[in-house]
Computed example of a mutant assay.
Amino acid sequence: MWAFKLFTILELPAADPYWQLPAAGYPALPARSNQTAGGMQFIVDPAIPQHVFLASKQFPIAKLMYHGQEKYGKFAYSSHFGFNLSRDTQYIQQFAIDNALAFSIAGQDQFTSRRVIDASQMYADYAVSVWHTTTAQVVTYLVPLTATLHVRIHEVTTAFTLDAYEGGFPLTPWNPKHQTPATTAHSTSAVNREAVSTITDLLANRQPTHVDQGPNTNLISPEKNVVPALYTQLTPGRHILACAVLGDPRPGMALADADAQLSVTTTGYAVHNGAQTVTIPRYQ
């Protein structure tokens, strides 16, 4: 719908000055761009054939917005990986877990993720969103590090025992009969000829896993895909979850480039990536 608005230019008459203007080259994007009004953070590298933005503000409120949770509520969107749509909210394999944190009452397998954002704030190096589901209150910090790597920190408060899954970028094509992601003690990585997708637990309190998603669930490809993921069961109370998420369309890149560390202090967090450190005071 939005793309077709471009064709309103064709309503201009042939004599309009617009048609006399010389063609201009595509403007170079800044390496880092924060879109405050939209709550989006962009990091661009001309050497990498994708655009990724992290989302912390927009959410669907129209009742007729089909799949609005997937279109607006995910933490990250990529021009290379696309995003998934849920076939059902029953069972995690049917739920679009890519770039989302989803909760279910333990054992019920009925999942939901970020949809309504109660508050958001953007800073120079990170952004915050405050959101809720029927079972949890969450404060999420999104920290872009490079054009392919970002960190997520979640403060989760719940009165229930919850099954919690968090996914990285969806990788397609993927056939679970013949392909298996590589799993370590703290991370899951999926690699094929198209790209590499990795999610790494930064606090050692979740189990690396993966979620196979069916055909015709990804916006870009009709093939099956896989989502590297982290799982834990949360008890009633307050929890801190954190992960580093890598999505790179260069499948031969070194997985060590996904390296990031997190320090938790009494007042907030510090994210480290090489010589880069991002200090994050706890949101009040």
Rank of each mutant, 00 (worst) to 15 (best):
P49G: 08
H67E: 15
S56T: 14
P60E: 04
T36M: 03
M40L: 12
P46Q: 00
P60F: 01
I48T: 15
Q69T: 14
Y66L: 13
E70M: 11
D45I: 08
I48S: 12
E70T: 06
Y72S: 10
R32K: 05
T36I: 05
H51L: 14
Q35Y: 05
L64I: 06
K71W: 06
Y72P: 02
A62N: 14
Y72D: 07
F42V: 03
E70P: 14
M40W: 13
I43T: 15
F42C: 02
Y66E: 09
R32I: 00
Q41T: 03
H67C: 12
P49D: 10
Q58K: 08
A55D: 10
K71C: 10
R32Q: 01
L54D: 09
F59G: 13
K57D: 11
G38M: 06
Q69Y: 03
G38Q: 02
Q50A: 14
K57A: 14
Y72R: 03
V52S: 15
K71D: 13
K57E: 05
P49E: 04
G38A: 08
M65Y: 10
I48W: 07
G38E: 06
Q69N: 12
S56Q: 12
Q35G: 02
Q69S: 09
G39C: 02
P49T: 13
F42L: 11
K57V: 08
G68R: 10
I43S: 06
G38F: 02
A55W: 03
Y66Q: 13
P46V: 00
G39I: 05
T36K: 06
A47N: 15
E70Y: 07
Q50N: 15
P46A: 00
A62Q: 14
M65E: 15
G73C: 02
K71V: 04
F53C: 12
Q69V: 09
G73Q: 01
V52H: 07
N34C: 01
L64D: 12
V44D: 05
K63S: 10
G39V: 05
A37W: 09
F59W: 11
K71I: 06
Y72A: 13
S33N: 05
I61C: 12
N34E: 03
A37N: 10
D45W: 03
N34D: 01
